[in-house]
Each structure stands twice: as C-alpha cells, then as structure tokens.
Nucleic acid binder design. Sequence first.
DNA 1: GGCCCAATTGAAACTTAATCTCAATTTCAG
DNA 2: CTGAAATTGAGATTAAGTTTCAATTGGGCC
Lengths: 143, 143
Amino acid sequence: MERTLFMNFLAARGLKLTKERMAVLRQIFSIHGHFEPERLYLNIRSSGIKASRASVYRTLNLLVESGLVERISRSEKGNVYEHTYGHRHHDHMICTTCGEVIEFFSENLEEIQNVICTRYHFTGTSHTLEIRGQCRTCKKRKK
Amino acid sequence: MERTLFMNFLAARGLKLTKERMAVLRQIFSIHGHFEPERLYLNIRSSGIKASRASVYRTLNLLVESGLVERISRSEKGNVYEHTYGHRHHDHMICTTCGEVIEFFSENLEEIQNVICTRYHFTGTSHTLEIRGQCRTCKKRKK
DNA sequence: GGCCCAATTGAAACTTAATCTCAATTTCAG
DNA sequence: CTGAAATTGAGATTAAGTTTCAATTGGGCC
C-alpha cells in the first residue's frame, strides 16, 4: 500500500524514513478527501505526535513528487491537496461562497477531451477541470 | 466597449471613475493574453502613469467582479488573469515539455459541464480546464 | 551493537503576493 | 463651486510557504 510505495520512493532517492514523514503519510491517508497543509499540521499535533510545520510542508512536497498526493487547487487561503493513491480520477466543483468541494466524474467528459486532443495532435497525459460557482445550499441562502 | 461597461459597473455601485482605474483598464485591454498583477503594475508605471500597487490590485478585483476580467489560475508566483470581454471563453492545453499553450474551445464540453452542474444542483459561473501532455512537435522529437 | 556522516529536524527568520490602514486628495452630485 | 463620500499612495500588515543553520537522527557498514 501507500506506505510501501512511499518507502520505495524515499529509498530510490537516498532519503530517510523518519517518524515525522511517517506521521504525515499516515495522517494524510486517514483524511477522507481534501485537506489543507495547516489542517494536516494541526491534526498531527493533536494526535500527540510532534512535527514542525516545516516538516509537514517538506513531506507534503515529497508526497506530491512521488505521485501519492496531488495538489488540486490554490484557494484564497492556500493550497488544497488530496491523496491520489486508491482514488479514481475525478474533477471538482468548488463553491466560491462556502468553499465546499464536490467531486464528480464523467466518462463523457473524458471522451470529448480525447477527441479534442486528437484534433490538435496533442498527447494528453492528465487534466484538471475545476468548475466554480455556487452550491445548492449557498444558492438557496442568497435568495 | 469595455470602457462603457466598466463605467456602468462603477456607476451602479456608486463608485467613482478615477484616472488610476482608467489606466488599469486601458492597460489590461492592451495586453494580448494572460498577465500577472505585477506585470500590469510595471506596465502602467513604465507608460508614465503613476498608480500604486494597491490601486492596481483594487481595480483588478473590481474588474473581476464586473466580469470584464477573469482570474484564470493561481500559479506558484501569484495569480494570472486575462480579460474576458471581447474574448471568447476557451480552455488550455499545456505541453509539459516545451511549455507551449494551446487555446481551444468545444461547445460539446461546455454543454456536458452544464448537464453535470444540473445533476449536482450546482450553479456554475466559470471553469478552468487544463489538459497537460505533449504537443505534436515534442512528441515527434522524443522518438 | 556501535560508528559515522549525510540527511533531517525545529525554531525562527525570511520571502512574496496581496490586503489593509489612514491621512491627504479627488470625484461628482447638488 | 462646495462638501460629503470615495479613493489614493506609502508603508505596515498578513499569511502561506520556504529557507537557514545548529543540533539531532537514520541507516549503511563493520
């Protein structure tokens, strides 16, 4: 699982397996869905493990490089991440009022992108689609 | 044109039409394509008009609110904007090898997104689709 | 196990984009 | 033209994220 993959990644780079790095990894994969670095840091803290903000950020970057975690957006108040290992690809809708993130997937959308790539002789390897607007709740509230 | 639209927007809000705001507007619409706030500020400066960074940022936000300008991404080094008025909406393909940016538009893609939004009771106001991969030239070269 | 050294850590300083403060200035309705 | 309200600029402030560097630690090697 992700633990082994991360260990292999570290080994391949001559990096060390520290308790701080393990704590970050464990915490990230225990979070269901999106998270911000600060929340990650606080979660780790409140779980009794001591790790500095610097280490949390450093490990986060390593995890992104390893492909286990992906940065999915930059909000007003910083980056948002999610772990990708064990997660099917999906896109996001983001409510600009409350910040809620809705995940969705559309086979149709994927297919059309392939068609477009072919038309432009482009070899697509990945994509990010972010739809911004208002979620049901915020839309109602505004009335 | 954009000038009139912006003036109407300001008037509707009881805001004033200042030379600084006009300078920002003029500069933005003279830039073909994407720009960053800092570049905008420097351009205005070097064109002889004096306007502070604060005013540039403040006006930029007003323009986004008015719908004349759109923030298209948040890069490592700040936000990237483009003016939308007089520009048809489009998405981007980015070659990860050479950095080339291909703009494209697909009515199909737009429609499917509307369908998805409806399904999730989400009121989409804008979106960003970025397809990463290799352009024709780089693909050929790699062989 | 124990040695050794490169990698890692934490605390605090730093960086950078963007926002805020507030006194002085400017706009514009009347 | 006048005055109230909005705006401006310079510099202070904020906050996310990175860097610095001395002290600590992991892990290959014997």
